[in-house]
Design a binder for these strands. Structure first.
Lengths: 303, 303
DNA sequence: CGATCTTACGGGATTCGTAAACATA
DNA sequence: TATGTTTACGAATCCCGTAAGATCG
């Protein structure tokens, strides 16, 4: 009647079924033989049928016992597999990790980190979102994402932030552009040239809008585009200049283009690995953040 | 560290994972909420990682918890399936049965019983051996066979025997054979005609040899063949007569042949369902033996 | 008589439920 | 403050190991 059979009882049953001896199975299982007897009896009671025919010198499986053995052997395999898998997961040997990054980070830093991470953790399955920073934080809050690589400004305390590197703003222009003569430029230098911006309200966009408005009250971009690739292409044809983050240029096609760092205030932002403070981190998170730090230290464009 | 997780703990974990509430899960599982808390804690300890993030107003799965849930859901299905299957097996709804029969029974009675049994127990899987009675008993002893349908003579006490029907010896001959004029024959009537026998040392063969030797000291068959079909064919062509059991003729081609019952002593044998006395019978055995009795009662050729 | 399983029994660990404490929205 | 989880603790239960009993070769 009762449906409570224990893993241990099944293990013990299989030991007896294998050895066809209570005493040997007890020794093998490191329990006393009477205790084993009782366990088998309990199991038989819960099943409602004898599993073994025991005579003084001979133990043999009944028909029900044989059937039960046939069913339990794959079951034990499954249980052991679950055990093994969860151990590997807990010990951060394999697992799943959901990563988000804001657009500019997704364009340069994040892919490099993921590639680097997978060389040392080939069994890990990474799901990646490239979304605006606000969306990343929302995904974090909802628990859809384990860690976000985003610019950090005014994060609430519930978010745990580990700084990775400073991402400088640069102005991108054709190689023969007048500004290319200067070693550094500042926000004021930019106001004379038509701007091309990415349409989405990214943190970069907001910063540029704010700073440009300060030096040119009725600032408006000449063009708005959806993708960074389009933006660079338009700059290359001489339609204007644009502000991007230094870290995102590593993966871009920069032929006939050059860039200059912007000097002054609000000319960089701190990029961090952000996770939820009050949630237990996935075991892989530590090693992933370490990979982020390793990449940010070892790669010149993130320094 | 410890690798002991209980079925119950997994059930409780899944309940909490489903409801995301300790109190609801406790109520659903009919245990107190603190007890549930403790079980989850034990499970977490044995896994070595937190499964839930609990805050006062909010319970959510950790990454490890999600992974564990993904692994446990199919595991629970498997466990429930084992439960269901073993229940069906114990309650004789489905299962396996290994049947053996001696050659003459395998030729007529056994197939009819099996066919009849499968109409009422379509889920049962029957394995069938047709072997000499001695071999059948050997298979019984070795536990390879659950029940044997064999002639019973001098069985030891370890064998449990349930009588089914009397199988009479008959002499088979061409329709125009001189003996066909008689309503009954006796062993002495047979000595004047050439005998054809089946080669194997079946119980039938042994009986015939014994009885014929009594009436004809240097009795020897004119021909020995391997199969009953061959024997009948040779009788049909007039090469001799042969003794078979009545029950085995039902399935045979008897064109141009007729048979007469042998009168006197040692002219029949008792056919029984034989199983091991000291072994727990498979749950299906009872119903199978009942099917044997039903067939032997309802079919005229077994009366 | 020896090997092997079962029963009996006492002690220790486990587990449960009630009640109180604790933590957040 | 109200809701929901954890801690504390006493009692009941479970489970194991030792020792004795039973059974068959």
């Amino acid at each position: 009647m009762s449906s409570n059979a224990t893993f241990k009882q099944i293990e013990l049953f299989l030991a007896v079924a294998q050895t066809l001896s209570f005493s040997k199975a007890a020794e093998m299982s490191h329990i006393s033989q009477p205790a084993l007897s009782m366990n088998i009896r309990k199991l038989e009671d819960s099943i409602g049928a004898k599993l073994f025919d025991r005579h003084t010198r001979n133990v043999s499986l009944t028909a029900v016992g044989r059937e039960f053995q046939d069913m339990c052997l794959p079951l034990r395999d499954k249980i052991q597999q679950v055990h093994l898998n969860i151990r590997e997961f807990v010990h951060a040997k394999k697992g799943k990790l959901v990563v988000a990054a804001s657009p500019s980070i997704a364009a340069g830093f994040a892919p490099q980190v993921i590639a680097h991470y997978l060389t040392s953790h080939p069994e890990v399955e990474i799901k990646f979102y490239d979304e605006l920073a606000d969306v990343c934080i929302d995904l974090l809050r909802k628990g859809k994402v384990d860690v976000a690589l985003i610019p950090t400004e005014g994060l609430t305390q519930e978010l745990n932030q580990i700084d990775l590197f400073f991402d400088y703003f640069v102005v991108v222009m054709p190689e023969d552009h007048p500004l290319a003569c200067k070693a550094e430029v500042n926000w004021g230098d930019l106001r004379e040239y038509p701007h091309i911006q990415i349409r989405s309200p990214s943190t970069l966009r907001k910063t540029v809008d704010g700073q440009m408005s300060a030096v040119l009250p009725d600032f408006r971009p000449a063009y708005e585009v959806g993708l960074a690739v389009t933006l660079l292409s338009m700059i290359r044809t001489g339609l204007g200049i644009g502000v991007l983050s230094h870290s995102s240029l590593g993966q871009a096609n920069m032929t006939n283009l050059t860039f200059r760092r912007i000097a002054g205030h609000s000319t960089y932002r701190s990029i961090s690995a952000v996770s939820m403070n009050d949630r237990t981190p996935p075991p892989l998170l530590d090693s992933f953040v370490q990979a982020c730090q390793a990449v940010s230290r070892s790669t010149s464009e993130f320094q």
